[in-house]
Write a protein that binds this DNA or RNA. Structure first.
Lengths: 343, 343
DNA sequence: CTGAAAGCGCTTACAG
DNA sequence: CTGAAAGCGCTTACAG
């Protein structure tokens, strides 16, 4: 249990703990410790495999070299993939990651913030729920938001994607492919990322002089479970048999949508075109494969850490807001005519 | 930055920090602090929203209330789902989770162990790589292994699944469905979980007097990437056109296998039966859907934390080894004859 | 029934 | 060029 402490090294080197601390923190030159002493200390530290006690250091300096990562759901492939990148990038800078999932539940999110705060993380990457801005503003440590932000609050850093553009491109692609009566299936969530996807959808339809009325928009309660979504989507499609295509505003809605469309005996693409937000292994592998607008996961993760590290280092007062473009991945679900299949 | 400390409370209550500490740690009765004083302290602590500084406490007690979770790849759906459960369960006991991915790389794994150790986590949940037993044995804190273990080392706790039984059941199901020439596609990894799956496969074939020769077993280098796996599987299938069915030993092999089979223009189920280890959203949604042997993810996560907490509380000397059964999920990929499809 | 004091392992302002 | 000492916020053995 007991590890090697700075005292042990001091004793063996015949110097004071102060001197050891200076040398080990690279302040030997600055503090003008003699070269011989420095070398002696370094040698002994290496021999003893000295590891500084992070708790003690943290207590003294207030830095824990830990980042708090709050996602909506670590089991969701989008968040799991971002988490992986975040972990990797953080590691390069000597930071470890404490994580938690909110399930988009405000109470859970508050609990997570509280825990991370009193564990003294040095900075936060947060996928916020609704109404979390007050608590976040009180955090006193650098914060970068992801996936969504608070439109009314200007002074948060964030890394998000251009949801409006993504939806616009998705719908425009459907139009180009010949689909006319196009619906969106989204959630009742009033969060900004969902609102922007809806706006992009409506805007694209209007630009193309296509019907964008209320019955083209189906909003499902965002706290349904998978079977619930599937059931509701099925019901909606049954009541709107004249639709040409559907735009699903999240990957889980897209996945449920596939089940719904199938259960109705419709052929994806020829009977009903579809595009989903977010890519997913399933979309690539399905037959027909599913067109989507994909998020740049690698880049999101890299930018999150880059921004956060900068904030932690400089404690800069300027906030930065990064909006990344989405990529349309054209696949078979947006092809109207059955093509002759090769291979 | 500065939070409320025990001193602030002591001052306001007109008592010493010692007394405050006793009361806040529920030792008021034991230390025979008067009820009035206790109540006063509690009231002030609540009013000030006092949160104990975990660093200071950790430094003093040696407990950080943190668990280290080392998985193979947090972006893999199996590990992401287990991580979610682990996080939830840990939270119930007041523990937070620090995580890292090894990519099944020994060096990365050693690095993670080192970091977690000097961060003083109270216990570890580890998906070990090969040759990691020595380092793990030196950890000095409770450890529970997951997914795999070291057959030669008897004194580690672990929670794993019955890989042999899973493979056996999978292959037996293929036989019952009428398939005869059955191959396994696995990796060159010599880790126990892969070995057991192979053994289960061979055993099942032998029990049914079916050919279990070398050409029924295809091992791929485990460090290939997805396209690499797909290519190798395609090559193997081309060279073995007489196969009736294939058992894929991991979910990512199964996924790559689907791509291979498709690219060869074969119909899954009727032309070539298949079962995969591990369930995955894709397997349920694909058409035809894919039969698999599924791991009990919820239970794995729960047992891991339960076992680890017990070890941390009791510091018991006995080790416990839990082997959970797998569940065969029968789907369309193991049906030989095209059925009339309803709805 | 309560408190003064030591100590966990560091860092750093101060002194020489 | 180097060290004694204070202090980060707790807990706990000891004393009364």
């Amino acid at each position: 249990m007991k590890g090697i402490s700075i005292k042990d090294i001091a004793q063996q080197a015949g110097v004071s703990p102060t001197t050891v601390s200076f040398v080990l923190n690279g302040k030997g030159k600055e503090k003008r410790i003699s070269d011989q002493v420095s070398k002696r200390i370094l040698k002994i530290a290496a021999k003893l495999k000295y590891k500084p006690n992070q708790l003690a250091r943290g207590l003294r300096t207030g830095k824990t070299k830990t980042i708090g990562l709050i996602v909506e759901d670590i089991a969701n492939s989008f968040f799991a993939n971002v988490a992986k990148v975040v972990e990797d990038e953080a590691d390069k800078h000597g930071y470890k990651v404490l994580f938690g999932s909110t399930e988009d539940n405000e109470e859970k999110a508050r609990g997570l913030l509280e825990v991370l705060r009193y564990r003294q993380v040095d900075g936060y990457i947060i996928t916020p729920t609704l109404n979390l801005d007050k608590e976040i503003a009180l955090l006193q440590k650098p914060v970068v938001l992801m996936d969504r932000y608070f439109p009314n609050v200007k002074d948060f850093n964030y890394v998000v994607v251009d949801n409006f553009q993504g939806a616009y491109v998705a719908v425009s692609h459907l139009v180009e492919q010949g689909y006319r009566k196009i619906a969106i299936i989204t959630t009742t969530s009033s969060q900004v990322q969902m609102q922007q996807r809806l706006d992009g959808f409506v805007d694209a339809l209007k630009k193309h002089d296509l019907p964008a009325g209320k019955n083209m928009i189906k909003r499902l309660p965002f706290d349904l479970d998978r079977p619930g979504f599937t059931q509701e989507i099925t019901k909606y499609l049954q009541n709107n048999k004249d639709l040409d295509a559907v735009f699903f505003a999240t990957n889980y809605l897209g996945i449920c949508g596939i089940e719904s469309i199938r259960s109705l005996g419709l052929q994806i693409g020829s009977d009903l075109g579809m595009v989903s937000f977010d890519d997913h292994d399933i979309f690539r592998l399905l037959n027909p494969s599913i067109t989507c607008v994909a998020q740049p996961i690698e880049e999101i993760g890299r930018r999150l850490i880059q921004l956060l590290i900068e904030e932690m280092d400089n404690n800069s007062e300027t906030t930065r807001q990064i909006v990344l473009p989405l990529e349309l991945r054209k696949r078979e679900s947006t092809i109207m005519k059955e093509m002759v299949k090769l291979s």
